[in-house]
Design a binder for these strands. Sequence first.
RNA 1: GCCCCCAUCGUCUAGCGGCCUAGGAUGCCGCCCUCUCACGGCGGUGACAGGGGUUCGAAUCCCCUUGGGGGUACCA
Length: 488
Amino acid sequence: MNDIRVRFAPSPTGYLHVGGARTALFNWLFARHHGGSFILRIEDTDVERSTEESARQIIQSLTWLGIDWDEGPLKGGDYGPYFQSERLSLYREYSQKLLDEGKAYLCFCTQEELAREREEARKQGRPPRYSGRCRDLSLEERERCLEEGRRPVIRLMVPRQGTTVVSDLIRGEVSFENKVFDDFIIVKSDGMPTYNFACVVDDSTMKISHVIRAEEHLSNTPKQMMLYRALGFSLPKFAHVPMILAPDRSKLSKRHGATSVEEFREQGYLPEVIVNYLALLGWSPGDNREIMGIDEIITEFSLDRVSKTAAVYDTKKLTWLNAHYIRETAVDDLIKTALPFLEKEGILREPVPDSTYQKLRDAVEAVQDRVKTVAEIPHAVSYFFSDDFEYEEKGVNKHFKKEGVADLLRAARERLAEVEPFDLETTEKAYRALIAERGIKGGQLIHPTRVALTGRTFGPGLFDVMVILGKERTLERLDRAIKMIEKL
RNA sequence: GCCCCCAUCGUCUAGCGGCCUAGGAUGCCGCCCUCUCACGGCGGUGACAGGGGUUCGAAUCCCCUUGGGGGUACCA
């Protein structure tokens, strides 16, 4: 492992959504490509919104995706702890240092005062920036405020002149006039560090070499650079990856349906599909490859092939990719991932006995290229496991209400009764013979039979269905359908 | 309001001055295969936001406009 160190630093305030997952993935790919370290750090300094449950959830989602970390929660490492809430003494140490060196100061303004000032400034068309009033507080004034029990925040003294230039690996040089920034808060009145401060202290003390994060942080970067300078830390390299937008081009949020990794999992998407798809959102290998295995992506990944344009994620393409992977997956592996779904839908219970497993295997194989998600499998195979199904109305109208269908099915039933062994070849031969004798089109017999056996007008090849069901159940279902048709 | 970023088919993208009458994928449409539905194969639809420059030559470089996104919090 070399000295390339990157991190993913989510705040545990909700599920891991596709944007976060993509950021995590790019960091991870970068680390794996270069043989560096990938660190997971939990940014739980927002006491109000952070939850342990959310942290657990994020960790679970990352694990499911196969994004593993070299240092972080559950794993440890030489630069821990990896929860910011456990690093408070570190932030205290550095904020005190800034205070001692006169690079930061205590501010006693209340949130109400500040809000009022902002409002005032907005009305007058001035930028809503903090005035810097408390910079010049006298020692006495400070003492008095402290004695009154006011809880100050700590602000960084920001240079009023000059320019801060961010050197971004993806966007090139981006410059900011220092005067657009105010003396921003680095420690809140509850003693917790703000994002910009904790982030800098941690990235530096954790020896992060490349800060790869979403573009929404680009505007924060000059502030962080000011902190690096004030603290005497050396700068990491920055790379701001484009955002992922919801289909309506707005920022991703809860109201956009399935945006969390967890939801995609529940909907029957495969982790390797999410990874493949996400890798292609904002990055491409440079040629026309789209279906790429994880190892392939790792060897090809490079930051200079990351685009600058925000991407809208499109579940249509995700679904296509998922269907493709499902087709390519070995049946036994597919069954393994489908089992929880099958169980949930009451199709079967674990442990699956050998005899059932064989049937399950045949059934899954039969529907494998007909489903787009694993979650569709239970419904697709349900009639193989339950005799108790309804006939589709469309099928009844179209195929059961035809003249002479009952008679035709009766004839078919008699032929099939004599078929031995009952396999693909023999069943089809029997049917073809009957079709020829009657001088009808294949579909005229095959369609009503399918409705009789499955209740549906679509599905796997009819003879596959017969063989998987077995002779006995095939005949039973034909009998049942004939009876039903006669009552129509 | 101010600051920053971005701009190729509906969507994801290739393109880094001539190879572009702009390539691939997905979606959609049609045809073929076929017992249905899928799969697969073939074909079609569809984009350089607009305007100025620079250049022998611009999707590619520069400027403006427009549009989209982000930031501007005691959120991260």
